[in-house]
């Protein structure tokens, strides 16, 4: 029963399988993205309060929601690393940290741009932006720890532990920041988009964009994990053969 699980843990198997998945994922992402972006930019009706800034939502919300998935992913990979000592899990965790930091940074930037017309300022200590910022710091901490430890094995375990501790902390931070923010100042009207009932002409393109960005996340994670596999397995015969067979381009 566990056989598939450990086969999945073999970097070579993953490399070969992901090579087959990638073109399909790429086609799926391109299709979803083009439909989603055209729909969001051309067909979504203007919001009666926000006007055309509602189109920012179709980038900001998918990116932000996927950046929230990054810490749980790293924590699960960390548990697998610590319990089953699976190398592939650590490679995924290592690659997920910088990608997650990218997603968080883009979510912060787009959130700030979306907030500007509403708040009249580029940065507000809004509960969501603040907890996103702290999540960004946590990710930077994991990346810094990874680069500080020289031994790959020790770095894997240390980062796994830090990711688990961070993942436990993320909800606590989120809760405390919300509590701090709601009592400090009146609740921002940033959540307007969720309060008002959304018709299908609003949420269908949003769902499409969320799936598109999810595909993008998976693709970029697979791409950098494949590089990491080649890097770490460069002495094994299958990688040597693969490099010899690769067409020069």
């Amino acid at each position: 029963m566990w056989q598939w699980f450990f086969r999945l843990g073999s970097p070579k198997w993953f490399y070969e399988m992901s090579g087959k998945w990638l073109p399909w994922l790429f086609v799926l992402m391109t299709a979803l993205l083009s439909v989603g972006i055209v729909w969001a930019l051309l067909y979504v009706p203007q919001d009666y309060q926000q006007g055309d800034t509602i189109r920012i939502m179709y980038v900001h919300v998918p990116v932000a929601s996927i950046s929230l998935a990054c810490f749980p992913l790293m924590a699960v990979a960390g548990i697998i690393t610590l319990v089953w000592k699976m190398k592939l899990a650590d490679m995924v965790a290592k690659c997920a940290a910088p990608i997650g930091a990218w997603f968080t940074a883009v979510a912060l930037a787009t959130g700030a741009i979306w907030g500007q017309p509403i708040w009249g300022t580029w940065w507000a200590w809004d509960a969501r932006l603040t907890s996103m910022l702290i999540q960004f710091f946590l990710l930077i901490g994991v990346i810094a720890l990874r680069s500080a430890i020289e031994s790959t094995d020790a770095a894997a375990k240390a980062c796994a532990l830090l990711s688990i501790v961070g993942a436990i902390n993320v909800p606590i931070i989120k809760y405390s920041v919300e509590w701090w923010n709601t009592l400090h100042q009146p609740a921002s009207n940033f959540s307007m988009a969720e309060d008002s009932p959304m018709g299908p002409e609003i949420w269908v393109p949003l769902v499409i964009m969320i799936f598109a960005v999810y595909c993008f996340f998976v693709i970029s994670l697979i791409l950098s994990t494949r590089n990491e596999i080649l890097e770490r397995e460069r002495r094994s015969q299958w990688v040597v053969d693969l490099i010899a067979d690769e067409r020069t381009n």
Partner: peptide, 23 residues
């Protein structure tokens, strides 16, 4: 405990721990 074995730690301890202390 995570950084005790590192030769040059510099600010990494603060970078790791400070975000955890926010609550």
């Amino acid at each position: 405990a995570l950084t005790v074995g590192l030769g040059s730690r510099g600010l990494i301890l603060a970078v790791i721990v400070l975000p955890l202390t926010v609550p």
